[in-house]
Design a protein around this nucleic acid. Structure first.
Length: 426
RNA sequence: GGUGGGGUACCGAAGCGGUCAAACGGGGCAGACUGUAAAUCUGCUGGCUCAGCCUUCGGAGGUUCGAAUCCUCCCCCCACCA
């Protein structure tokens, strides 16, 4: 049995740990949990680091628990939030929870007999909690004076008109209680999470010490940042989700492939299971031959394979090759449909393109390639518009049936990466 | 309630009777270079039937041949004073 904290440490993914945590893992198998917020029906790449935390834990022979905050999600964690949150309905939360469960199953082994991963919903116990019992048993152990000093609460108290509701103010009690319940039910003695969870985690540790006289531990992972200061997990297209319906495997793959050089090695350590030697090799490859981007490629392939499977990866790869390899000639209609399935598309009736065809400016504006005809005109004049990968030179050009690939598709591109598929209907 | 300062394009910010679709900076988009990078350089960045026309400078009126610019009223912000 290995100590997962050593693994975290060399990977640079351990921001902080409570006293005695390292020794605790050396003594024998432990059960540890991480909570996931069910504010959306999918996790995004921002949750990937904690998930990898659970993965390493399980590989080291310990038991991971993923807690989906069906109950706490109904309350809202004030940590890191400037404003009071919109409350989710129970139905929304339940739905989101299902999505998240499916995604965690891609990372953790729920089948092994020795240390299977578990997935629980804290609504199971928070939902049936009686107010009076809770206030007597749990509330007693929390000092309002201490709560008021908490960073997350204090910031909100200083807000002029925002403030904090009693609901969110009590959030930390809920999360602390979660830890206690998990200790009782699963002998779970470790809680992990993002660094913003430190306060919530230590609150749970305190509660366990007071109510059960036991020692529990906490480990927090750093906030993933990028060297250029861009918020990790966001692209022009928005958040990068794990759900293929929200972020296609192709875009997901591209997200990782586009990692900046300085981030590539840290990310390999964070998000793949590669060992030290492999990472070191890629590091020197990146230093010697940066243009090959071996590290980014490996990163993109590993992570995409894990999240979207072998099929998702090969589709993403194929799409990448076609989109950046250049040649669209010779592709069948089916191949185009497949490769461009990830690309935003619009549909036009076939007769639009019959005879004289449609002026390209109108088509660009109406299909959403450009925001207006003026924009379309300027983009063409600037040399930034391509039809079927051939630069459009003439602003007055018309698009006709002969332009359609396989008689069915028009592939527009603005710039290097922005594709748009126009489908001919009828 | 009093006094002073303001509201300009995605954001910040100039302009203070015509030469203003509005300087400059940021952001965004595109081009060149490259590694689908960073940095850099270049162009574009209200709409259209695009060498021209139309709608914009908090809102509504007015003065003027002509207003983002002057006047009146209204709305909203900020600073200081009570």
């Amino acid at each position: 049995m290995n100590n997962p904290l050593d693994e975290y440490h060399w990977r640079g993914m351990m921001q902080d740990l409570t006293e005695g945590a390292h020794e605790a893992f050396s003594q024998g198998p432990r059960t540890a949990y991480i909570g996931f917020d069910p504010t959306a029906s999918s996790l995004h790449v921002g949750s990937l680091l904690p998930i990898m935390g659970l993965v390493h834990l399980q590989r080291a022979g310990h038991s991971p628990i993923g807690v989906v905050g069906g109950g706490t999600g109904l309350i809202g964690d004030p940590s890191g939030k400037a404003l009071e949150r919109q409350l989710l309905t129970r139905e929304q939360t339940a739905e989101n929870l299902e999505g998240i469960r499916g995604q965690l199953e891609r990372f953790l082994d729920f089948q092994v007999s020795t240390n299977p991963a578990r997935m629980v919903n804290n609504l199971d116990w928070l939902g049936e909690l009686r107010t009076v019992d809770f206030l007597r048993e749990v509330g007693k152990h929390f000092s309002v004076n201490a709560l008021l000093r908490k960073e997350s609460v204090r910031r909100r108290l200083e807000e002029e008109d925002g403030g904090i509701s009693f609901t969110e103010f009590s959030y930390v009690l809920m999360q602390a209680y979660d830890f206690l319940v998990l200790l009782d039910r699963y002998n779970c003695t470790v809680q992990m999470g993002g660094s913003d969870q430190w306060g919530n985690i230590t609150a749970g540790i305190d509660l366990i010490r007071r109510m059960r006289g036991e020692k529990a531990f906490g480990v927090v992972f750093p906030l993933v940042t990028s060297a250029t200061g861009v918020k990790f997990g966001k692209t022009e297209a928005g958040t990068v989700w794990l759900d293929p319906a929200r972020t296609s495997p192709y875009r997901f793959f591209q997200f990782w492939l586009n990692t900046d050089d300085p981030d590539a090695i840290p990310y390999l350590k964070f998000f793949t299971l590669m060992g030290k030697e492999e990472v070191a090799e890629l590091e020197s490859a990146l230093a010697d031959r940066p243009h090959e981007r071996a590290a980014q490629r490996a990163l993109a392939e590993e992570v995409t394979r894990r999240v979207h499977g072998e099929t998702g990866l090969s589709r993403a790869r194929q799409a990448t090759q076609v989109l950046f390899g250049g040649d669209l000639e010779g592709l069948s209609g089916e191949e185009i449909a497949d490769v461009f399935s990830d690309v935003p598309s619009s549909e036009f009736p076939r007769q639009t393109f019959e005879g004289e065809g449609m002026p390209i400016l109108d088509l660009l504006a109406e299909s959403g390639v450009a925001s207006s005809k003026g924009d379309a005109r300027r983009s063409i004049q600037g040399g930034g518009v391509y039809l079927n990968n051939i630069r459009v030179e003439d602003v007055g050009r018309r698009v006709r049936l002969e332009d359609a690939l396989g008689g069915r598709f028009l592939v527009f591109r603005k710039g290097k990466k922005n594709y748009r598929l126009v489908k001919l209907l009828g």
